[in-house]
Nucleic acid binder design. Structure first.
Length: 299
DNA sequence: GGTAGACCTGGACGC
DNA sequence: GCGTCCAGGTCTACC
């Protein structure tokens, strides 16, 4: 067993970072809101699934943000320790600077909102996005659970593991429906080195070029690209889906029979908050979910 | 460029 | 318990 520590900034708030986005409900993640622990499964350098419990130990002064403590089910090599720290820091966006966002949205600062949980890898974020498209959230939860159980041996499947499946078998086993073809094609492209996900994580990559590359992935449309963009820390565009239409109708009375025109009006409304458009939009949604408990009830 | 239909699953609903 | 309908985002064929 290994115990690791990751220092956190003073504005880090563990429960908020975990529960501000629905991916905390998706396998292999398991959040205990009473005990304030996040259990997940990561992979060591040999591809073995390792259980990891993540907790936050508060700092003893306002100048000290405390540490994330990672308790791992196995003893880890130095290399794997570094890898796990990096992956957990990615998941909880430990290094993200929220100053600019909180300046334009003080309510979010007071709510300790701004770090949205994501996956340990971009590949996992993309697959999770595909499983979240055109389906009820409860089905997304089921798909990810079955994928971890039957394909990833407990953890989230690697590109190689998913690439080895035939779409028809994946569809029958994991209940992803027509998404099976999209997931397997993505996994095979990544596994074969034809799709360079690391290049997409480069923060200096032009935003429009990143968008073009995302849309070039089979199964990724405008909504999915927008969702993946925010997973990459690019908040300058809102990922518009049916929930967005409900939100702007209820909050601003914004409607239009012409969907293209409505999308444009939504983009214009949130572009005022660029480069934090998505965070402002999601904060509005999130406060609504907090008030109604809706998000949690869907789990 | 715009639009209609297919894709697949789970849940809601009526019988 | 069974059948039907619907929601959800993307792709493709067609106009």
């Amino acid at each position: 067993m290994s115990t690791l520590k990751i220092p956190t900034p003073t504005d880090f708030h563990f429960p908020s970072a975990v529960s501000s986005y629905g991916y905390y409900m998706l396998a292999p993640n398991q959040w205990d809101p009473q005990g304030l622990t996040l259990d997940t499964v990561l992979r060591d350098g040999d591809g073995n699934s390792i259980g990891v419990r993540i907790e936050h130990i508060a700092g003893r002064s306002s100048q000290n943000g405390g540490d994330l403590r990672l308790t791992c089910s196995h003893s880890l090599s130095r290399t794997t320790q570094r890898m796990f720290k990096s992956q957990v820091a990615r998941m909880l966006r430990v290094d993200e600077d929220l100053t600019g966002f909180h300046r334009i949205c003080p309510a979010a600062r007071r709510a300790k909102f701004g770090r949205l949980i994501r996956s340990a890898t971009l590949f996992e974020d993309i697959v999770k996005t595909i499983t979240g498209c055109n389906v009820a959230w409860s089905s997304t939860i089921t798909m990810n659970r079955l994928m971890c159980e039957h394909v990833g041996a407990g953890g989230f499947p690697t590109p190689a593991q998913l690439a080895a499946w035939e779409p028809a078998d994946l569809k029958a086993t994991v209940k992803v429906g027509y998404r099976a073809e999209r997931i397997v094609r993505l996994a095979r492209a990544v596994d074969a080195g034809e799709l360079d996900l690391a290049a997409m994580e480069d923060p200096t990559l032009d935003g429009d070029e990143l968008h073009r590359r995302l849309l070039a992935i089979y199964g990724i449309g405008e909504y999915a690209a927008g969702n993946i963009r925010h997973c990459l820390g690019r908040y300058d565009r809102v990922a518009i889906d049916s929930e967005t239409y409900r939100h702007v109708r209820e909050k601003f009375g914004l409607t239009d029979d012409n969907i293209t025109r409505l999308n444009q009006r939504i983009i214009e409304r949130y572009s005022a908050f660029a480069p934090y458009s998505f965070l402002v939009y999601w904060f509005e949604l999130w406060t609504g979910y907090q008030a109604t408990g809706e998000y949690h009830d869907n789990a």
